[in-house]
Design a protein around this nucleic acid. Structure first.
Lengths: 196, 196
DNA sequence: CATCTCATGTAATCAGTTACATGATTTC
DNA sequence: GAAATCATGTAACTGATTACATGAGATG
């Protein structure tokens, strides 16, 4: 499970509660990873059992006590081991490509609609990465004046996300062009059934 | 679950057993989807209950009976509905980027090793897509002389996989260059500790 | 008066992987 | 003699999502 190691990574920046860890996810790595609170809480418990983190409870009134987790030496060691460990590249697992693969079962115009819409969605994600997220990194950069060059690495992950979205968008374009010429060729061949 | 729909898609090409469906996966869509037999068998059972497929049993000696599944009108309708249904773009979910994100916790040279190895793995996958798979599509194209233009769509999915791998490889290059200049800058600044 | 923030969790379900189980036939 | 092919499954486990549960205080 990479979630354990993502949490350990974040805890390098300082002790945090589960709730704060979730906020960190949402504001920094959501372009390539995500986790729900309902997954984070049990995972933290597990990590405590494994000795990767220490827990300190801050008693509160009117709301659940804050449980602040801090990375241990064991946690740091495990993180360092995991980072260096080789891993197979992430598989491309995209249900949209299933739709394309069986595209010959549908009219070409329907496939073009599909591609156009998917491209628009990708464009939204790209714009989000390019504008919102890069601004966020700049901000973090200035606020903490980039201790240990973390911002460089944050930016690299963003650039991968951006490269991926751009490649997808370009592919949608190429695919639509290919289908358009396919359609035009077949309509030129079967001209008899054409007209209004 | 997209597996149901992937199986329905394949069954458009003709009736098949679970075993044959698995072979189809391995020889055609494995660059963007995969499924184990242990997942396929129960899913086919479910699809039969839903009325998406009909089952015919072919009795065999010395080995389990072949259960041949054929898509029904209901299955075709469900597939057609699903294909046209909008879906959010697949999330980028890449544990390698977690490693990069926390790269400031490691020596830069270790990060360079990591990137180099990952790039090599991506290159292997790219070569596989470019050579083996495209040859496979050409072959399928000639064998069945491309009824209904299926090969065009097969090729499109392959091209997406290739575009993705190329973008990843290019990004690894850029990342390594960025880290190298980062390292060179910091060694130029802290020259006192330099030497041997 | 409604929604968002803070702060914790559990339970159910879904999707997918790995391990286990069987066993004849063919290929190297 | 070992491994791959054919052909079916079940069971256990992992990882992740969705729904459910609680409830004060702040913001709009």
């Amino acid at each position: 499970m990479s979630l354990k190691h993502a949490l350990l990574g974040i805890l390098h920046y300082g002790p945090m509660t589960g709730y704060e860890l979730k906020q960190f996810f949402d504001s920094s790595v959501q372009h390539f990873w995500n986790a729900e609170l309902s997954q984070i809480y049990p995972t933290l418990k597990q990590m405590e059992e494994l000795g990767y983190v220490d827990k300190r409870v801050e008693v509160q009134e009117n709301r659940p006590n804050r449980k602040i987790y801090e990375i241990t030496a064991g946690g740091r060691a495990e993180f360092a081991r995991w980072v260096r460990e080789p891993m197979p590249p992430a598989a491309l697992r995209d249900p949209f490509l299933i739709k394309i693969f069986f595209g010959s079962e549908l009219p070409i115009d329907d496939m073009l609609i599909l591609l156009r819409r998917q491209q628009e969605e990708e464009q939204k994600l790209l714009a989000f990465s390019e504008i919102v997220l890069s601004a966020r990194i700049d901000h973090a950069h200035k606020e903490h004046h980039d201790i240990a060059g973390a911002a460089t690495f944050w930016r690299l992950t963003l650039e991968m996300a951006i490269a991926h979205r751009r490649a997808y968008i370009a592919w949608c374009d190429a695919a639509m062009h290919a289908l358009e010429s396919m359609r035009d060729e077949s309509s030129a061949a079967g001209e008899a059934s054409g007209g209004e």
